[in-house]
């Protein structure tokens, strides 16, 4: 299992899964604490119309037009949600529901109406991604890691995802104080000169970037699950924000590795010949981690609720 075949078939998908999971879990921590957890959900739905429009405009399914289209759609969605919330004085959950279902419906309709038979673009792909297909053809074994020629053949998603993950880590590090204070006490943050609205907007943009990049590699299920499940489980482990972020990174990593292994090799243990969806399994594992945290984690209760019987 750990030989040349592993390097060729499983190493890169697993790394991409880990990077995507971490990239989503990082901003997810702050979204969770700000009760904006579902923004990630909304954004990953509207990615579909974005990539469809990008395809219709450029006629290709190369990465950059797709990512720009998806990012544009995410921004349009956030603006629309805000506009509907203000214009109609509608509660934000409902406004979000209106916007993301409509944009997703428009995306599906556009997709069905346009000729995409020549390219690989469909709704299922948008949802599940195709993690298993991101294999490293040129690898012959662990030694390929030091072989420049083989390294050049790495799937481009790996480098992109790595850049985005590092970028998000830097975002969280650099804006740590601003993010933390404006998340916990917006009024205080404002009073010491933090531009809370700008910080909030930057967080949404970071979320969109993580969603779009991860979506390109692994599909939107993982994106939604990773925005929420690892940070939520981490929140139940500790009261310290820094420790919560570390826990969430750990949970995201474990979900990605365990999910990928279970999807790829798990069915074999039961004598089944085929693997199952890695994206779905990673989301499932993150859910199992969260379930365990809900039942047993040290900080699972609200303060003051601990004495109550559960």
């Amino acid at each position: 299992m750990m030989g040349a075949e592993f390097v060729q078939l499983s190493l890169t998908p697993m790394l991409i899964g880990i990077l995507a999971s971490i990239a989503c879990a990082l901003p997810g921590n702050f979204l969770l604490l700000r009760r904006q957890a579902l923004i990630g959900d909304a954004i990953s739905h509207v990615v579909l119309p974005g990539i469809v429009v990008a395809f219709l405009v450029t006629g290709t399914v190369t990465a950059w037009p797709m990512m720009i289209g998806a990012a544009a759609a995410a921004i349009v969605a956030v603006l629309l949600i805000e506009a509907i919330r203000r214009l109609g004085r509608i509660e934000s959950g409902a406004a979000m529901g209106v916007v993301f279902t409509t944009l997703f419906a428009a995306g599906v309709l556009l997709l069905e109406q346009s000729d995409t038979s020549s390219v690989h673009l469909d709704v299922e792909h948008a949802l599940y991604g195709n993690l298993e297909s991101l294999i490293w053809f040129d690898a012959t074994g662990w030694s390929s890691l030091f072989d420049a020629e083989a390294l050049a053949g790495l799937p481009p998603q790996l480098a992109r995802m790595a850049i985005v993950a590092v970028g998000l880590a830097l975002f969280v590090l650099v804006l740590w104080k601003e993010l933390a204070i404006s998340t916990f006490d917006g009024v205080f943050a404002h009073s010491i000169g933090i531009r809370t609205r700008a910080v909030g907007f930057a967080l949404v943009v970071a979320t969109a970037i993580a969603a779009v990049a991860a979506f390109d590699a692994v599909g939107s299920i993982i994106v939604i699950a990773m925005f929420i499940c690892p940070p939520a489980a981490a929140r139940l482990m500790t009261d310290s924000l820094a420790r919560q972020v570390w826990w969430s990174v750990g949970f995201a990593t474990v979900s990605a590795i365990l999910g990928y292994v279970l999807a790829g090799y798990g069915p074999g243990w039961f004598g089944l010949p085929h693997s199952v969806s890695a994206a779905g399994m990673i989301a499932t594992v993150s859910g199992i981690i969260l379930a365990v945290a809900c039942l047993a984690a040290p900080r699972r209760h609200r303060s003051g609720q601990a004495a109550e019987t559960v």
Partner: peptide, 21 residues
């Protein structure tokens, strides 16, 4: 201590992921 929106997001993504599996 998780809020309802986190619970919603967790359930929808995990159940959907399980469904895809």
């Amino acid at each position: 201590r998780l809020s309802e929106d986190a619970a919603i997001g967790a359930v929808l993504s995990v159940f959907f992921g399980l469904g895809v599996v």
